[in-house]
Design a protein around this nucleic acid. Sequence first.
DNA 1: AGGTTAGTAATTTTT
DNA 2: TTACTAACCT
Length: 742
Amino acid sequence: MFAGCSIAARVTATPPLPAYLSRLNPEQRAAVETLDGPLLVLAGAGTGKTRVLTTRFAHLLMSGRAQPHQVLAVTFTNKAAREMRERLSAMLQRPVEGLWLGTFHALAARMLRRHAELVGLRSDFTILDTDDQARLLKQVMDAAGVDLKRWPPNGLMAVIQRWKDRGIAAGKVPVAETSDYANNRAEALYAAYQARLVALNACDFGDLLLHVVEILRGNEDVLQRYHRLFRYILVDEYQDTNLVQYMWLRLLAQGHRNICCVGDDDQSIYSWRGAEIENILRFEKDFPGAVIVRLESNYRSTRPILAAASHLIARNEGRLGKTLRSGRNDASGERVRVVSLWDGDEEARMVGERIEQEQRRGISLAEMAILVRAGFQTRAFEERLVTLGVPYRVFGGAKFYERAEIRDAIAYFRASASAADDLAFERIVNTPKRGLGDTAINALHVTAREGQMPLQVAAGRLATSDVLRPRPRASLRELVENFARWRALLERESHVVTAAQILEESGYTDMWKQDRSPEAPGRLDNLKELLRAMGDFPSMAAFLEHIALVMENDDKAEGDKVSLMTLHAAKGLEFDLVFLPGWEEGLFPSQRSLDEGGAKALEEERRLAYVGITRARKLCVISHAANRRIYGNWTSSIPSRFLDELPEGEVQREGADLRPKAPPASVFGGGPLMGTRQPRVIEAGAWEVQSRPVPDFAVGSRVFHQKFGYGRVTAVEDGRLDIEFEKAGPKRVMASFVEAVQ
DNA sequence: AGGTTAGTAATTTTT
DNA sequence: TTACTAACCT
């Protein structure tokens, strides 16, 4: 009884712990409760990052530290933003309004609309998609007389994008960041492109952040306003931020410095998109006095999986350092499998068999995934799964809003809503075909430029002049009349009804109805889906404003299906069973990455491997094939160096007899790869050499190959043979895989 | 103007 | 191998 009293007294002495905090482990609680000052949360894979983020947000509100609108919460994807919003309102048990929660781009766009005039835009500026950007840039280059064959627009696009990622505005390119593209004309073209954007009252994705940073830098009063507004800043996936995003955050965090960044340097895999891993590595320097909390208790994977991932990633030099430990009691489990196979077909067969086997053992297909380095690798597995009748779903590919039919439809809507939207009008002026070819389009541009008018107005002029032949002239007249009518209709009818009418009357739906290709019905479905989605918005203007930034990806997770996707697309997901095929030098790590980025790129490839392994909860099956058909011809490959970097004790090797000997000269040739590579140690037994000695082959000798059958040697080079096969035609194969006959 | 063919290039893609 | 683009023919 006395004991009972004293416990009661102690409980009432400290305020009761809110339920949402009691569910956290100590390190997670530290991440949630360290509210003031800069905080970096290093969240290893599977350590409850999302839970910490949302709990921290909820804690800020519940403890009365901030009102919902006083917290700036930034994510990279719409999906992450949506998830955070949903979990937050579940935690607070009410819908939350007025949040500054969204993607970098959406939040920047929201700010930019408020201050657009400070960078020469109107607040109703259009956000261009990649396609519009490319076309506009091409026009600018064309006008500047650049030889587009010699200097592909995509190259300049990349240069400009990189500048924007790094916070460099047109006219302010530092000497160290110049590009020799098109004989040093890149800077001038950048300026011309930006001028065109302003003239069109438009900006691209990169501009959203860059413009806002310029505004915050140049307008103290605006900056002050945001300092007063945001008391706390939360950032997700900090390892993926680029320089301009960092600048934006830094400007906003000046003063109170209540910035909490959550991320994992070991999962930084987007440097090629401008992400700077240095941002997270130098957090302490950027924000002196910063607290760092490491989340290292992993609740996702078995011990061997964690051990394999940790051992591999420990090879990287540039990392803050973190060790995943199992947070579960039941964490023993099966060793990671490394399976060696003869060729890609056999690899696909192996994966298919194991999928069926595991399915029989009660694991659902939705809990299995095949994760590949590059998109084209999914094909072999698709073919196999189709043969087996195993349902699967391929993630990635074109996003809903990136599909041609969706962009076309939106272009119609944009051009209807605004006669000044030249890019939209130009996109659909001859879609469906209206007999308006190069001559007509050129005439349109000339008229528009001379009269300083939008293309649609120019089209009206041309329709009543005799510059064009009768047929295109009539087409233009009809189109101009249509747009005028649709614009009027938009004023008095619902935007969904109008949209449906636009697609009908323009002949756009008919175009797809008459299309015989197998994709056509799907495209019509997508258009219907688009119209349905429009209903969620109050007006056409509201719909168009949001579409560029927040149109969702189409992949609905319905049905029990195996997931097929790239390693990049898999970040943030988890599965019971994960297949990681194609672990071969050249493919993974990717030769191209290594060529372009050297040692740093190799570390990023290794992080990609780490991401892949840590997606698995129960079993991870890694494989490589000795032979693979790449772009139509057979190539032999050596196992990925990453396979040597797995801890021997946690790994079970299978199918050793088919592996080729240690790298003779790699089929990928010398090149930078050889320069950046560490010398490999081939453990005896691990990569068992074929017992049969490799005989010498003379040009002209007759040989047999397991896969291609009989053939005659036409050339011998460095352990490889060019062989003219009787059935399979000319191939280049490793000498060790053929045997001499007669 | 529009369809056909030959030539060439080929990762990863949050917005 | 495939997919996209640019010249080329009708």
